[in-house]
Simulated scan of single mutants.
Amino acid sequence: MMRALWTAASGMTAQQLNVDVISNNLSNVNTTGYKKQRVEFKDLLYETLSRANVLEGEGRPVNLQVGHGVAPVSTVTAYTMGNLEKTDNPLDFAIDGEGFFAVRDANEQIAYTRDGSFKISISDGEAKLVTKEGYAVLDDGDNEIYLTGIDVNSLSVGPTGELTYIDEDDVVQSLGQTLQVVQFQNRDGLLKTGSNFVSPSSASGEPILEMDIENKSTLMQGFLESSNVQVVEEMVKLIVAQRAYEVNSKAIQTSDEMLQMANNLRR
């Protein structure tokens, strides 16, 4: 009977984590470039009470085993595309494909993001392209992108990230820089670090510049990628998780009542 108590308790713990992940998805339904997650589970160790044993056509053809519950094993990120929302802001960029923008964070480390809502930061008279946090956006040579003396409204970005602008004589000029967009061999191995950023790990592999990839992404200026969270889908998952949690609690209650009956046999 004690086995049932611990098994059901493992189910309640697993469903609690499941609800935590679903809640995080729902809370980020309006987060630019957010990618939803789901929890994967595995069953735990089995106790074999009787093994299958067939000799010369006779014996038990099946095993008698009892499991010990469930445990969460991983959270998987779904990198499906979110809807593209038109903003008409020349500093908003969306990636149609599997790429990530590269930025330099406060620790001078390179981080990656799908959030292309960039801004202009003025420091010491220099205008620099940055994220909302003030992190510098990088070109394909890991250099910061400066827009000093350029009318931001005339800035244009090509499908593969080439930066151009219109000068005072209405002539299109190249900035000489290209937005860095990279891909990873295994996006599921990326580590989410918050603020819409991810960092590579040994599981994801090193970032690969899109110029070295056949299946390139396309940049779209004046658009932002919305979250790929589907509210109705998450609500259904939430209801299922709640019912599973409730059923496991009922199993604990039933086990407790059966133990109480067994204890009362001596009276």
Rank of each mutant, 00 (worst) to 15 (best):
G116E: 06
A71H: 11
Q185I: 01
I239N: 07
E168Y: 10
A241G: 10
E126H: 12
M211F: 10
F118N: 10
T31R: 07
K86N: 13
K119L: 14
M1T: 04
V103G: 01
F223I: 04
G205E: 11
N28P: 04
H68Y: 13
M81Q: 15
I208C: 06
F93C: 05
I166Q: 13
Q16W: 13
M12S: 11
E168W: 03
M12D: 11
M258D: 00
S227T: 04
G149L: 07
L175V: 06
A106K: 14
V137I: 09
L64N: 11
S156G: 09
S174W: 02
P207S: 05
A251G: 01
N186I: 08
S202R: 10
E214D: 07
T31W: 10
L91N: 03
A8P: 03
D20R: 03
T80W: 05
S10C: 09
Q15L: 10
L259S: 08
R51L: 09
V73H: 09
L265I: 15
Y79K: 04
Y34A: 00
T32W: 06
N28C: 06
I150Q: 09
E233P: 01
T178N: 14
F93A: 08
R51E: 13
G11K: 12
G82P: 01
T193V: 15
S249M: 09
L175N: 10
D212C: 02
E206V: 10
R266Q: 07
A94P: 01
D96W: 00
E108W: 02
E257D: 05
P72H: 15
Q221P: 09
L44T: 11
R60S: 15
V231S: 12
A102I: 02
L84Q: 04
E40H: 14
E108R: 03
S123D: 15
R187G: 01
K192I: 00
K132W: 04
V247N: 12
M261P: 00
D92R: 04
T31G: 03
T80D: 15
F223P: 02
A111P: 00
S226E: 08
K237T: 02
A127I: 00
E40R: 14
G176S: 03
A14P: 08
T77D: 03
E210T: 09
T77I: 05
K86M: 15
T48S: 12
T131H: 11
G82C: 09
S174Y: 03
T7P: 03
E133P: 05
G141D: 09
L147A: 08
M258W: 02
N215M: 11
